[in-house]
């Protein structure tokens, strides 16, 4: 697995122009956007970069050769998930450092912890997204996976929109009042003592989803012919 990790990291860092573009984008975003928005952006970018290594492996029929190297199929999948976790952690660290530095430069003070907390919630969201993207990429390949993800987003969007419209028609006040109650619960009940409870609980839940996704991916890769 160490060799595969070295391969992926070397593959990612071999693209200097792309990294230069990422750095420029992140700097522009961190200076132009308010609060800790950049943290969400770097976390999202890191997750997508991690997943993109699957398509590099599949390009030019590379998978058969990779599976002749000292690894088994489970080891290959494990390395991909570890790489994505590593990328997410680095993305979050870089995002937090960037937003703190730009806030100090722009305002002379650090970013409020509340903003950071809101932004850090993106980490579990991205972990869940990676958990969906990885098995689809491994099963269908990068090209088809893009189409599958677009269809999946469309279906999720349509279901959510329909549910909201339906809720508003049936019980016009419930949706709004429920959201207000949740916000009050988090702000007042958990607010001071359990400030980081929500991000931590969501991260643990997303890691559980990721584990299920890993098991599914192992099954997909084990059953696939290369």
């Amino acid at each position: 697995m160490k060799g595969l990790m070295v391969k992926d990291l070397r593959l990612l860092f071999s693209q200097k122009k792309t990294w230069l573009m990422y750095i420029m984008l992140c700097l522009m975003m961190s200076f132009s956007m308010q609060g800790a928005f950049i943290v969400g952006y770097t976390v999202m970018l890191a997750g997508v970069i991690g997943i993109s290594t699957i398509s590099y492996d599949q390009a030019d029929n590379g998978m058969p050769f990779l599976l002749t190297l000292p690894t088994d199929r489970k080891g290959y999948v494990r390395e991909k998930y570890l790489l994505c976790l590593l990328m997410e952690a680095c993305g979050a660290a870089v995002g937090i450092i960037l937003c703190e530095v730009t806030s100090l430069v722009k305002n002379g003070s650090g970013v409020p912890a509340d903003d950071i907390r809101s932004a850090v919630v993106v980490i579990p969201v991205m972990l869940i997204l990676v958990s969906f993207m990885a098995p689809i990429n491994l099963k269908y390949g990068a090209e088809k996976a893009r189409l599958v993800m677009m269809i999946a987003y469309g279906i999720i969007g349509a279901i959510t929109a329909s549910a909201v419209v339906l809720m508003q028609d049936i019980m016009p006040d419930l949706g709004h009042s429920a959201l207000v109650k949740i916000k009050v619960f988090f702000d007042e009940t958990l607010g001071g003592t359990y400030f980081w409870t929500v991000p931590v609980v969501l991260t643990v839940l997303s890691l559980a989803v990721m584990y299920v996704s890993y098991r599914i991916s192992v099954r997909i890769v084990s059953n696939k012919e290369y």
């Binding site: 060799g3 391969k7 070397r10 593959l11 390009a59 030019d60 029929n61 998978m63 000292p70």
Partner: peptide
């Protein structure tokens, strides 16, 4: 089928020495 075309020989050397 082989290593990705984006890699270089020196990358391949590092990967192989990490694997074997």
């Amino acid at each position: 089928s082989g290593f990705s075309g984006l890699l270089r020989v020196r990358d391949v050397a590092e990967i192989l020495s990490a694997m074997y």
